[in-house]
Structure formats: structure tokens, C-alpha cells
């Protein structure tokens, strides 16, 4: 990936999250019981994304990685912290202001089968953002759709068909074309290739990279597949139980992981080569369960956990240039 545009340190970031936290109210089990404490889906998330940069977010199900994306899209209210886009706080936006910002922040969704209305023609699906924002309609919109179809590698006649006649990979291309229709500066892609077949996954991953080179768009790329994330990201954040446990430039994470959870993740991924079979048993036991009330959230599963880990949550500290980790013992 030689053409990686590195984040210029002087340039203002496009997207910035500071102490971003989201919590959900937990309904009480019965009306006479006390209302339980809200569920802290993510807490104290800090990151920034530059122009033309991809931040990969890696985590397991329930880690809160999707919540981060939803917060940036304005789908869930923040309970604390802020999310800024081009310097403007977007966490409190509503109504018209939200709609105006939304033009620049788009999303590619996980399930290409569910995310396209089966009753609409592909042209109408891709043109929908143009129409609802009053940017183009009729012949003008159709011309723009033709451009977009070409851009994402679909045949020009695709517009006349319904989504049901396309395969998963082609549908994801349609979803990407829809996201690009508004020429957004920033795209949140939540597991955009996990529902696709292996042979098609690589095509879509490459498409994401090509589009970034061509259009300079920034991505928040959320995934659980560490190999895929490595291929699209410039920097990667590992999320566990709602907190970032490690964040670094892409290759540092794979060559010198610091946090025991990151190490366990990397160890657990099976490599498609029988010569590189995992030796020994998995080091991390158990599953992401109830979040401990105090201390490091990974402590219950951590092989390195000590008394301090159970008492005090470790801060996310810089361990090497551009490489931060939150662990007492690593």
C-alpha cells in the first residue's frame, strides 16, 4: 500500500471523537424494582480521522464497535463526550442541521441483502439521496447514477433491475454507490464485507481502497476480521467491552501488539496455511460477559491480570510513537 496518504500532523482532522460515550437505559425487570444502571455500551472513546484516512475498528460482537459508528452517524445520542466533523460538534444536531451534515457523512451497511429495498429499481435506490436532498432528479439524477455504477464496477444496465437479481457482492457495490452519491467526505462502513463470499470479499475490499485513492474519502471501517482490516486501514483501534484497549498505525498492531487482548485476537485467527497451525491452546478463556464494576474490563479473561487490574482501570497511554495501549502489565 505505497499510495497511502499519511495523516499530515498539521492538518485539522476531518472527524474527531473526544471522550465519546454512549449508554443505553436498561428496562427494569419488574415495576417495583429499582431502575438498573444504564448499560455503558462505549465509554471514553478518543480518536481522530484525517482526510483520506481509514481508521479500522476491530472488536468482537458486543464490544461496542458498531455503537461508535452509530454515534458518528447520529443514530444514538451521546451520553458524554463529543463527536466533531470538520470542527463542528455533530452530537447535538437535529432536524435540518442534521440533514445538512448527513450529506457529508454516509454509511455502507453490513447486510447487502437487507439494506436495499427489494421493491425499488437500482437507479431509484442510488438516486434516492440526490432526490431527497433536492440535488438532482430526472435525467440529471440518472446521469449521475450511470457515473456511480461505472465507478463501483457495475454494468450500465444494472440500473433498470431490482436488487433481487444481483449477487451479494454486486448488491454491496450498489450500497456503496448509494453512499457515494452525495460525494461524502466520510463513510462509516460497519462490517461491509462480512456477509460476502470469500471470492467476492477481496473485490469489495479493493474497491474501498480504489475509491479512497480516487475520491479522497475517509472511512471508519468497522470489522471483526483482522486480516481484512489490515488491508484497508491506516490506523487501527482495538475495542473491548466498550473501550479502546489499543490503537496504533496499522502494521505496528500486527508486528508488535502490546495489549494481551490484541495478542489473543491475533493468535486466535486461523491462518490459511496448514504449516502455520496454532501451536498450543488458546490463551484467552471464556467470553465477553458482564462488565466488571471496577478495573480493567478485560481482567476476568486476561492471563496477565493482577490485583491492580481488578481495582483500577488502566489509562490508554502512548507506549511507542503513535502506539497507545491500556494495560497495567503489558
Amino acid at each position: 500500500m505505497s499510495s497511502v496518504p499519511l495523516l499530515r500532523p498539521d492538518a485539522a482532522p476531518l472527524v474527531e471523537a473526544r471522550g465519546l460515550s454512549v449508554s443505553y437505559a436498561v428496562p427494569r425487570a419488574a415495576f417495583w424494582q429499582q431502575k438498573p444502571a444504564p448499560f455503558r455500551a462505549v465509554e471514553g472513546i478518543d480518536f481522530s480521522i484525517g482526510h483520506g484516512e481509514t481508521l479500522g475498528i476491530v472488536g468482537e460482537s458486543g464490544s461496542g464497535k458498531s455503537t461508535i459508528g452509530r454515534a458518528l452517524l447520529g443514530r444514538v445520542p451521546l451520553s458524554a463526550g463529543s463527536a466533531r466533523f470538520r470542527g463542528e460538534d455533530i452530537s447535538g444536531l437535529s432536524g435540518g442541521a442534521m440533514r445538512r451534515t448527513r450529506r457529508h457523512i454516509q454509511a455502507v451497511m453490513q447486510d447487502p441483502y437487507a439494506s436495499l429495498n427489494p421493491r425499488m429499481r437500482v437507479t431509484d435506490i442510488i438516486a434516492e439521496p440526490l432526490v431527497v436532498h433536492g440535488i438532482a432528479r430526472g435525467a440529471e439524477a440518472r446521469a449521475r447514477v450511470d457515473e456511480l455504477l461505472d465507478l463501483v464496477g457495475l454494468p450500465p444496465d444494472a440500473g433498470q433491475r431490482h436488487p433481487g437479481t444481483f449477487s451479494g457482492g454486486q448488491r454491496q457495490r450498489i450500497g456503496i454507490a448509494r453512499a457515494l452519491a452525495m460525494e461524502p467526505a466520510f463513510i462509516v462502513a460497519d462490517e461491509p464485507v462480512s456477509a460476502l463470499d470469500v471470492s467476492v470479499r477481496a473485490q469489495i475490499v479493493n474497491l474501498f481502497r480504489d475509491l479512497q485513492e480516487k475520491l479522497g474519502v475517509s472511512y471508519l471501517f468497522i470489522a471483526h476480521d483482522l486480516a481484512i482490516v489490515r488491508h484497508v486501514s491506516h490506523r487501527i483501534a482495538v475495542v473491548y467491552a466498550g473501550r479502546i484497549v489499543e490503537m496504533s498505525a496499522r502494521d505496528d498492531l500486527y508486528t508488535t501488539p502490546i495489549h494481551p487482548y490484541t495478542q489473543a485476537l491475533l493468535d486466535a485467527v486461523p491462518v490459511p496455511d496448514p504449516r502455520k497451525r496454532r501451536t498450543g491452546r488458546a490463551t484467552v478463556r471464556g467470553e465477553l460477559g458482564a462488565i466488571p464494576a471496577a478495573g480493567c474490563r478485560f481482567a476476568p479473561r486476561c492471563p496477565l491480570a493482577s490485583e491492580q487490574c481488578r481495582r483500577e482501570a488502566p489509562p490508554l497511554l502512548e507506549r511507542a510513537p503513535g502506539h497507545r495501549a491500556a494495560c497495567w502489565n503489558a
Binding site: 443514530r75 454516509q106 454509511a107 447486510d111 437487507a114
Partner: peptide, 14 residues
């Protein structure tokens, strides 16, 4: 809760 309705909301449909 369907994906395409969420997509429509994200796109900015009224």
C-alpha cells in the same frame, strides 16, 4: 428495523 429502512433514514429521507 429492516436494513433498507435504516439506510433510507441514514440517507436523509423524510
Amino acid at each position: 428495523n429492516e436494513g433498507y429502512v435504516e439506510a433510507a433514514e441514514l440517507v436523509g429521507c423524510s
